[in-house]
Design a binder for these strands. Structure first.
Length: 772
RNA sequence: GCCGGGGUGGCGGAAUUGGCAGACGCUGCGGACUUAAAAUCCGUUUGGACUUAACUCCAGUGCCGGUUCAAAUCCGGCCCUCGGCACCA
């Protein structure tokens, strides 16, 4: 006999915190480094600690948790960690606005969001929590930088930064929206500055080639990465500039066959040849004026204008194919950063060249295709090196020292971390905050011990997030970023889950970092993420949730009113994971109603259950049970959570119709429900008298014999239209079925008086009679 | 412009990949229970025709055409929509 306490109403507000405490105390979700089970690394992209969980997070982590719990019950040692992407601009902005310190602001946000995450009942291994702004993490981010520097993959060069002349400060791109300073609205200027870069272009070809290996990634993401890398095959062709003095003008083209159609040349305004060609000529003045104008245009203005302005240099170049002389122009539609910074213009074949020719009255020439061999085959990529230095405070300091005698000297590994000083004022004005702190900048050269100056730039936060999945494998290691045997054990990430907004940068940088470490034999894989699921946005009233639109739904309210189980169930049920999810308050109530039905089903039946013997004789119930196990399992394997939940609802509906049900069905129902709604499953499981947690139960198996029907329902079509369905025993012969089909009265209504010209029989599926 | 998704009832979405279109849920409508409401339960909900019988018939998965015994699914051509990239030569 089952002992079953008469249960009151379903009150998630009570049972959810209760079980969360038990699970934490029992360390139910901690991952063992040494387990005989096969590993499964399930990772949702870690959050930026902005202060509040939003519905996108809820969706992201609910998806991750269903997978984790499902895999765990299927015998895997699951690693499902969590942490904080904690460096970055918002903390610094908040500091300026609220006169707090970014560290304090971030700590508060993390505290609040930790509570919220714990309320959701996600089965994280909290003992592996990482926070990128803490010393024990950024020490190793700095170590990573040194590794890159050692291999010549970190270098300095001049680049343009956004500069606000009024605030006298560097602006991040997102602070310089529309060419205006975010604080004072002044026009942003571009200033050249020496900056640190990571040489990702050394890996262009491998990053492109290895996309082939990513079988478990969505096609859309792979395409975006391919486009971003932007490989093109072309030819470099030398044009000669005959006078004075003779020079070679190199151009890059992917269409050498259009060489006969060239009617002019265009150089980027910054092209080194421009001065030589025009200095001392009557064109010098106009060219200089044009260059000056382009220089003062912000990037923003340059992108906005589709205008094809340009100036003639007065010089000519000789087309090597036909020795024709064509004029050389300069225009800002040709970019110095790509190809050779110079093009041969073929207005008859290129839209941009066409527009430029029209605007500047240059000839347009249709021409025979050129088939000769010329120039050198070249492969180009659009991918640029990764600018990683930020003139900002809230980031990992770049571990470098400038010495007058020794030059650029890396901080030795034993001296890491280069600590971020806490004693800083945030006004938002003036130069980079770190530059004004003497105790930080004044340092001894690690080599010669003379007075030297410390690098004051910090690292792009994308670096912090490009290796965190490695740290999770060995989060507490004080001696290394991660031990070899630990990353060998857990890498690669079997399932990565996150928003499509990270399709390019974060995922590309992580792939790059993994490859660099792989080449140094520090990690066992050259691709970090085996499978990728990009979850869709959560929207309401057809638009992204945002404060300004006033359509934000607060997870705290939903969890407070209905419980975490309902919130999780709803976001998983309402839509397939990769698609957009339209929020529906009524839909949430529907999910809550379902859980209540489960609650009552167990409560009402707990005392009048069938014995197992009775069940074994109840073939119908057994079949329903085993079919449910089969379809829920298969749906979960392909991450079709919405249909898996639908199958559970059908199962509950079936059980509700029965006068008598059995323990096994109820137990199986709870186990199948456990990944989605872990608290209610645990509560009812324990109410049924089980002592051990439901989350330690193995996933149920179905009996293949019990998922087939004794009797088949075969649709019968006449000329492809359904006219009747007939029931036949399993294994019935084709002939028997056809006879039965033809005997049907309804079928005869349509075949009568006509002759059957064809009989189509799809085994166990369907009959189609073709009549004339 | 180039690339990639997507288009199925009033709504979110199903459909074992060519085989009963609309599972499951929401909403609406009708009913039961109740003094009443809430909750719960039952029925119904693609459109149209005939209601003279109903396990009835016709149409229907963005549009036009094709392949097939059979198309939401495959092929050709269009339209719309969302997203990414973009003076990249």
């Amino acid at each position: 006999m089952l002992k079953f306490k008469t249960m009151a109403e379903y009150t998630p507000q009570q049972i959810e915190p209760k079980w969360q405490k038990v699970w934490e105390k029992d360390k139910l979700y901690e991952t063992s480094d040494r387990s005989d089970k096969p590993k499964y690394y399930d990772l949702a992209m870690f959050p930026y600690p902005s202060g509040n969980l939003h519905m996108g997070h809820v969706r992201n982590y609910a998806i991750g948790d269903v997978i984790a719990r499902f895999k765990r019950m299927n015998g895997f040692e699951v690693l499902q960690p969590i942490g904080w992407d904690a460096f970055g601009m918002p903390a610094e902005n908040a500091a300026i606005k609220n006169r707090t310190h970014p560290a304090d602001w971030t700590a508060k946000c993390i505290e609040r969001m930790t509570k919220q995450l714990k309320r959701m009942g996600i089965s994280y291994d909290w003992s592996r929590e990482v926070t990128t702004c803490k010393e024990d993490y950024y020490k190793w981010t700095q170590w990573l930088f040194l590794k890159f520097y050692e291999k010549g993959l970190a270098y300095r060069k001049e680049a343009k930064i956004n500069w606000c002349p009024k605030c006298q400060t560097v602006l991040a791109n997102e602070q310089a929206k529309n060419g205006k300073c975010w604080r004072c609205d002044s026009a942003v200027e571009e200033k050249p500055l020496e900056q640190w870069f990571f040489k990702i272009t050394d890996y262009s070809e491998r990053l492109l080639q290895d996309i082939e290996k990513l079988k478990g990634w969505p096609e859309s993401v792979k395409t975006m990465q391919r486009n971003w890398i932007g490989k093109s095959r072309g030819v470099e062709i030398d044009f000669t500039v005959p006078r004075p003095p003779s020079r070679v003008l190199k151009v890059y083209t992917t269409r050498p066959d259009t060489l006969f159609g060239v009617t002019y040349m265009v150089l980027a305004p910054e092209h080194p040849l421009v001065g030589e060609l025009t200095n001392g000529t009557k064109y010098e003045k106009d060219v200089k004026a044009f260059k000056e104008k382009v220089k003062h245009e912000t990037l923003h203005e340059r992108e906005e204008s589709s205008n094809k302005e340009g100036v003639f240099t007065g010089a000519y170049a000789v087309n090597p194919a036909n020795n024709e002389e064509v004029p050389i122009w300069i225009s800002d539609y040709v970019l110095m950063e790509y190809g050779t910074g110079a093009i041969m213009a073929v207005p008859a074949h290129d839209q941009r060249d066409f527009e430029f020719a029209k605007q500047n009255n240059l000839p347009i020439k249709e021409a025979e295709p050129y088939t000769g061999n010329i120039g050198e085959q070249k492969i180009k990529y659009k991918l640029r090196d990764w600018l990683i230095s930020r003139q900002r405070y809230w980031g990992a300091p770049i571990p470098m020292v400038y010495c007058e005698k020794c030059g650029i000297v890396p901080v030795p590994e034993k001296d890491l971390p280069v600590k971020l000083p806490k004693n800083v004022k945030f006004t938002g004005e003036g130069a980079s905050p770190l530059a004004s702190i003497k105790e930080f900048t004044e340092v001894r050269c690690p080599k010669c011990k003379e007075k030297a100056r410390r690098e004051t730039d910090t690292m792009d936060t994308f670096i912090c997030s490009s290796w965190y999945y490695l740290r999770y494998c060995d989060a507490k290691n004080k001696k290394e970023a991660f031990a070899k045997d630990k990353v060998d054990r857990f890498m690669p990430v079997d399932q990565y889950i996150g928003g499509i907004e990270h399709a390019i940068l974060h995922l590309l940088y992580s792939r790059f970092v993994t490859k660099v470490l792989y080449d140094q034999k520090l990690v066992p894989v050259d691709e970090p993420f085996k499978n990728l699921l990009t979850q869709g946005m959560v929207i309401k009233d057809g638009a992204k949730m945002s404060k300004s639109k006033g359509n934000v739904v607060d997870p705290d309210h939903i969890i407070g009113n209905y419980g975490a189980d309902t919130a999780r169930l709803f976001v998983l049920f309402a839509s397939p994971p990769e698609r957009e999810l339209e929020w529906s308050d009524k839909g949430v109530e529907g999910s809550f109603r379902f859980l209540n039905r489960v609650w009552r089903l167990v409560g009402e039946n707990a005392e009048c259950l069938m014995t197992n013997d009775e069940l074994m004789n109840n073939n119908e119930l057994l079949k329903i049970l085993h079919k449910t196990i089969k379809s829920v399992t298969e749906d979960l394997e392909k991450f079709s959570f919405n249909t898996a939940i639908a199958r559970l609802m059908e199962f509950v509906n079936e059980l509700n119709k029965k006068e008598n049900i059995d323990t096994n069905s109820l137990k199986a129902l709870l186990i199948l429900l456990a990944p989605f709604a872990p608290h209610i499953a645990e509560e009812l499981w324990s109410a049924l008298g089980n002592k051990k947690s439901i989350h330690l139960e193995p996933w149920p198996k179905y009996d293949p014999k019990l998922v087939t029907e004794d009797e088949l329902t075969i649709p019968v079509q006449v000329n492809g239209r359904l006219r009747d369905t007939i029931k036949v025993p399993v294994g019935a012969e084709k002939e028997t079925i056809l006879v039965a089909a033809k005997r049907s009265e309804k079928v005869q209504n349509f075949t009568g008086g006509k002759s059957i010209v064809k009989e189509v029989y799809v085994p166990s599926k369907l009959v189609n009679l073709v009549v004339k």
